[in-house]
Computed example of a mutant assay.
Amino acid sequence: MVEQLINGLAESDEVDLFYLEERDDRPLIDFGNRGKKIDFFERIDFDRYDILHSHTIKADAYLWWHKKHRRNAKIISTLHNLAYEDLPMQYGRLKGNLLANLWGKVLRSFDGVVCLTEEAQKHYAGHWKSVKLIDFVYNGIEKETKKCRGSDQKTVTNRSKKKMGILASAGGVGERKGVDQVIRALPRLPAYDVFVAGKRTKEIEHLVELSRSLGVEKRVHFLGFVAEVACWIEEMDVMVAPSRSEGFSLGLLEIVRSRKPVVCSRISSHREAFDESEVSFFTLEDIDDFVAAMRRVESEGPVRVDRAYQRFVREYTTEAMVEKYRRIYRRVSNAE
């Protein structure tokens, strides 16, 4: 999302990117001379900028820590998750709720906070009453994919099997991504192999054991991080988005852009992005409902796929997202 926002803004505005850490589990996005790594206690020239826009709790904490060195620049943050759902799943209930509460205290000093959906804005309004929740902006991606060079992860298996893909994201395969639900359904979906794209985590050990206990381990494939996501999606027959919690899924947008049939968990962010006429939903933890959703996808033609794609073009492109952020920047800086 940050990459899309920077590239869109840079067409008419001066944009610099500062980042606090590098990861060895996936490539660093190339922002050329606009990107610079800094340390947490390193002070930048804050007032060189009209807007300081942070993403993730660590970047928010950086701006909060250095707030006394800022005089004129306005600060906003984008929240990419539902903290009181996501953090307890990631860190345990006690630590997760503590982190969420501390995050709210940090954001009280900001000039505004942006959520990814209307439901997320309501989520935070109930928890962080003193935080300035100024708006929500749907994520956007480029309308067209770049020329496909071929996936870096081959998925050649038994040619008689259909390919079901799960895009667990660069963040990794964890409980929040809901992959276990799909594995539990596999004994009732003998026509499919499942391919999971996403950084390998400890959760995968539990999923491998689950697949083994159900006798489907040969049909479940964990691919690790996949760089050429669009090419990989093209190899799949159907995509599944089984997450238990999401801010606003860029992965789901990539699937819809590729015009692939998709089965989604019936969570608030998915339901806000698309409706029953565009994707096939299933109720969380209800394996019968998941199997039924897969059957619907198998029996239907491309009608849902086409409807979902048309909605993507109308509402979820980079251009739409960037224009909304420009309005927020002007609003926060009192320019309108």
Score class of each variant (00 low, 15 high):
V2Y: 05
A320I: 07
D286Q: 01
D237N: 13
I166Y: 01
S160I: 04
K105E: 09
S130G: 10
R331S: 15
G198W: 03
L87A: 04
D180G: 09
K74H: 05
G35L: 09
E272N: 13
K74V: 02
G126A: 05
N33G: 07
L28V: 03
T157I: 13
N139K: 01
L207C: 09
Q153V: 14
V216A: 12
V194A: 04
R200M: 13
I57E: 14
P302H: 03
E336P: 15
K37C: 09
P190C: 11
C231I: 12
V15Q: 12
H270Y: 15
H123S: 05
T145W: 00
G150A: 12
L87W: 00
N101S: 12
T78D: 06
D50P: 06
F31K: 05
G247R: 00
S54Y: 03
G104H: 06
A59E: 04
D24V: 12
D13C: 12
V279Q: 00
R71D: 08
G150F: 04
G126S: 09
I75D: 02
L87C: 04
R266N: 08
V179N: 03
K74T: 01
W65G: 02
R259N: 10
R266M: 12
A191P: 04
G178A: 07
R48M: 10
S249A: 11
N97R: 10
N334M: 08
T283H: 14
S299Y: 07
S109I: 04
A308R: 07
Q153C: 13
S169D: 05
K58A: 12
Y316Q: 06
R70E: 02
R93T: 09
S243I: 01
R149C: 04
D24P: 09
G32C: 08
E315N: 15
K218I: 05
K143A: 10
Y91G: 08
R295A: 15
D50Y: 05
Y138F: 15
S258D: 10
Q181T: 00
T155E: 03
L252A: 08
I267Y: 03
F281R: 05
S211A: 15
I57W: 09
V173W: 01
R159L: 06
K105M: 11
S268V: 11
V173R: 00
L87D: 01
I204V: 15
F18L: 12
E209M: 13
I75R: 00
Q181E: 02
E209P: 09
L5R: 12
L82T: 00
A170N: 08
V262N: 07
S109K: 13
Y49V: 04
L79D: 00
S245P: 05
L99D: 03
D39P: 07
R259W: 06
S213C: 13
V220W: 04
L189Y: 01
K146D: 06
R71E: 13
V297R: 00
K67P: 11
S258T: 10
A241H: 00
L9K: 07
A335L: 15
E254T: 01
A100T: 01
F282N: 04
E203F: 14
Y325L: 14
R48K: 15
S160Y: 04
G301C: 15
F136Y: 11
E144M: 11
S258Q: 14
H66A: 06
R188T: 07
E228Q: 14
